[in-house]
Amino acid sequence: MLEARLDQAEILKKVVDAIKDLVQDCNFDCNDSGIALQAMDNSHVALVSMNLQADSFAPYRCDRNIALGVNLTSLTKVLRAAQNTDILTLRALDAPDSLNLVFESQDKDRISEYDLKLMDIDQEHLGIPETEYAATIKMPSVEFRRICTDLMALSESVTIEASKDGIKFTCSGDIGNGSVTLRQHTNVENEKENIEIELSEPVALTFSLKYLVNFCKAAGLSNTVTICLSNEVPLLVSYALTSKAGSNLRFYLAPKIGD
């Protein structure tokens, strides 16, 4: 059986909120190392991958591999009943037809309990190759969201160029064109404001802004976002879910290539 207790319901609420417009139904794959989710959007352009390691929960118990087939719209309805600061416990049997969710207020004066019906989802699992990215950018997540939404007002695509001069986001549309350039920046007093750029070779790739703006719904999960690029491979946009390494929400986006 599965029993997983999260100290803050906020994490799961925000994860589901961030991905529910990209993915409708997906399996939460539970095993002794934690809970993972992988799903593509309907048009197979983007891939969402979530990992919540067992050490993100206390306690965490999962004796066998369990796939929880969940409709995210339904899960959203149930999670709406949880306050951000509630303690959230997920429970399921080994071959479950429902997922039990318990929300407890921090001072334990309210306990809510819900059962969510599960579904059988036959989902393809994709192997994501280990990639040494040519460019890695770590920046404030709200700043990345602002760049994407600002550029989407002009165009449906953005070209991201990484060079020794910095990271340049360029778009052009019917009303005109625009660009934003980021340079490495260290704020000694407020590390969250830092922009860190690691570059091993120049990169230039074009992506759909509609998807990038969608990924930015995860900005509430983490102050910083990590963006990884290599020529002719999908872009990786990654948000840390907890302070523990390995628990993250990742989005991969296939590029636009050629004319």
Partner: peptide
């Protein structure tokens, strides 16, 4: 602005 690629062209089915 280029042709949208599919993620399936990059990641193989496990």
């Amino acid at each position: 602005t280029g042709k949208q690629q599919s993620i399936l062209g990059f990641f193989s089915k496990a």
